[in-house]
Design a protein around this nucleic acid. Sequence first.
DNA 1: CGCGCCATTGATGATTATCAAATTTCGTGG
DNA 2: CCACGAAATTTGATAATCATCAATGGCGCG
Lengths: 249, 249
Amino acid sequence: MALSSSPRVIDPGIFQIRVVDSWLEAMPHDGKNLLLSDKDRQTLCDLASPVDIREANRSLYRQGDTATDVFLLVDGLVRTSRIVANGNRQIIAFHWPGDFFGLSEHNLYVSDADSVSPSFLCRFSLQALEKAFAEHPALQSLFLVKALNDLREAQHQIVNVSQSDLPSRLAFFLLECAEHPECYDAEQHIVTLPMSRLDLADYLGAAQESVSRALTVLEKRQLIRRLSTQRLWLDTVHLPPFCTLDRES
Amino acid sequence: MALSSSPRVIDPGIFQIRVVDSWLEAMPHDGKNLLLSDKDRQTLCDLASPVDIREANRSLYRQGDTATDVFLLVDGLVRTSRIVANGNRQIIAFHWPGDFFGLSEHNLYVSDADSVSPSFLCRFSLQALEKAFAEHPALQSLFLVKALNDLREAQHQIVNVSQSDLPSRLAFFLLECAEHPECYDAEQHIVTLPMSRLDLADYLGAAQESVSRALTVLEKRQLIRRLSTQRLWLDTVHLPPFCTLDRES
DNA sequence: CGCGCCATTGATGATTATCAAATTTCGTGG
DNA sequence: CCACGAAATTTGATAATCATCAATGGCGCG
């Protein structure tokens, strides 16, 4: 699935910015996305270049490349990751439709970015963006609100990675996936994971074997059922308390 | 150290915003702080209310409190932390002079904030801030640049917490402390830790006993020397490679 | 001087990484 | 459509890391 019918062109209607809260009253939201004005949409539209990625695991940029653009994911899934000196890879974030990525430091990208599934994105030139900020302060507000949302998400991941044992962390991630209609069938309570076990492991800071074992643990407790490698049924009643309360049989 | 001579009043000169990179060319920096114009300083000054905290471990706000302000730390050290359901505390970040904190979601603070040492801060009303953004776009740029810096730092911590073993994580944190002149004597290579072992443990996602043992490991390898509980000599040559390369005797 | 808190050290058990092997899945070609 | 081979996933066994429980040591503060 995933690539239902990727759009190929950019029109003002495709832009959605995923947030759970806005921080600025001038920037309204519906709890899932920012509510963009027609003018905002047009401004974004004028700045955006389309990027159509038809394969999984295709590189968008590498850590250390000169940063010229930021990307807005419209459809698909992208991961940003970093290689640490012992050779391990840490996935810093999965980017869902409505997410920006392309963070840089000293004009160099700070991470790798790769497609996880076929994806359609908008590319925004940093130069053009900064110029547009001057003329359209609302555009800058949009980026500020989104950056603060991303900061909250990153802090949340810090807590999750640091505190819980692996089955709990995994359970938490599965529930996160269930919040994305792209991969969750709310009727059947079935998530279709778009990423491999290795991606999952590198995101959760674990070995892929440990992820398999954690899935076994959740299944033995009947919190999930493995319908296939990628398709999982979730017990949406008992899974949430498990994330935080930790083990007790 | 730490509380050399806390200022008690706000004047335009006290503002510094800690960043390593600006992202916006219109917002210049010197690699450590943003270079604020006199007008920026005056705008901040007009909005700021002083907060003088003379004790350590004093609460500024609690998770779930109604969020009315953001804070800029001028002098001292503040931690933001979250209590997870099993009762553990995770310190999400230490805030150094030049850092903002006070992140909220749905108008509620998402974490606790407490002084680690006596601190002097500026409080900014969210309402007033948003109004000022409309009139002074440069002020909003300042917040955007700082938010992106914080996001990078949070992502860095994700990598650090997930990947390394505890001695490496600790070594990394000690080097981070050494970048803050408030607690580092660059001549003698001595850091004076402003926080307790428990704070350290809750930041690194470990038990406090494990932090002690990690210190012992670093000392046995002669990467540090414990001059006193809080004062540590650092081998600034051999410590950096240890952070990333991990164990090899 | 002594009390109490914080830090360190010791011993044990739980979690997870690592090495290794078996099994399943999936794409490709017959 | 089936068979085969490569890759991904799962399971098994062992070792390293770290949390936990417990006790000792050190330091500041009254």
